[in-house]
Amino acid sequence: MPASNETLVMPTTLPQTELRRARSRGEQAVELVLGACALATVLTTLGILLVLAAETFGFLREVGLGKLLFDTQWTPLFSDKHFGIWPLVAGTCVTSFVAILVALPLGLLAAIFMSELATPRTRAWVKPALEVLAGVPTIVYGYFALVVVTPLLQSFVPGLAGFNALSAGLVMGIMIMPLIASLTEDALSAVPKSLREAAYALGASKVPTILRVVVPAAMGGIAASVIIAVSRAVGETMIVAIAAGQEPHLSLDPRTAMETMTAYIVQISLGDTPAGTLEYRTIFVVGSALFLLTLAMNVTSYKLAKRFRRQT
């Protein structure tokens, strides 16, 4: 029996090992290619860091960090050049602040509606409907802010300029509201049912339970969603480039024209500034600041959300 068995197996094993070896070489090649694809995402990050750092160092060697941080004027295109970044930061802060002022209450209440009050059937269409808001291209919101919202506001806000931070911020608030709503809804839904039941058992009705038990319990997740929304507002470009104006000045008055960091990059990109000049480098400097600012917020939000998930 063993002999006949051997004669059956022997002829087939040789080509099989060869086949297997060829196959495993193919397998390894495939794995290598797929790994390279995954590595491309890491290279993207490295690319961003390298491009931003190279131009920023060139700028700092020529101008110095002091002038960037301790000047209050931003006039790289004038003959009297000043490179104080704060006017651009102020523009970004004011528009983002107005946006959050709109998006936070709307987003929070909408999240409470979806998570605690709506029937599953209502939620099933409300959620995608709100997501449409976030999917509209920002250029469309920019058109809306400049052509519709600003004239509308000018009829009752005294001293509102044609380009102003207020209408850009308001429209941006509508745009980022779904982000807060969706992430806050996740946070509220993650609060254990037992907490709500305990509140009901103590005689609390629905609304006090939501406001005094569920919302405080989800505070970590809500904070994370707000930080992400601020980060999105800081990086938003087209609405502010179209509607907020291109005048960098150090002010906190949302009725005036302001220039945000993103809008400055757009302004320079539209002109024909030759590569290698100081003006050209400023957009990478502003880009670096923007990148670091949003990165810090994204990481903070991520950590907050993670800690919140561990607690619930």
Partner: peptide, 13 residues
């Protein structure tokens, strides 16, 4: 989470 305009700077550089 990187703002889209930063990708523009990457593309330019």
């Amino acid at each position: 989470g990187v703002p889209s305009i930063v990708y523009g700077l990457l593309g330019l550089g």
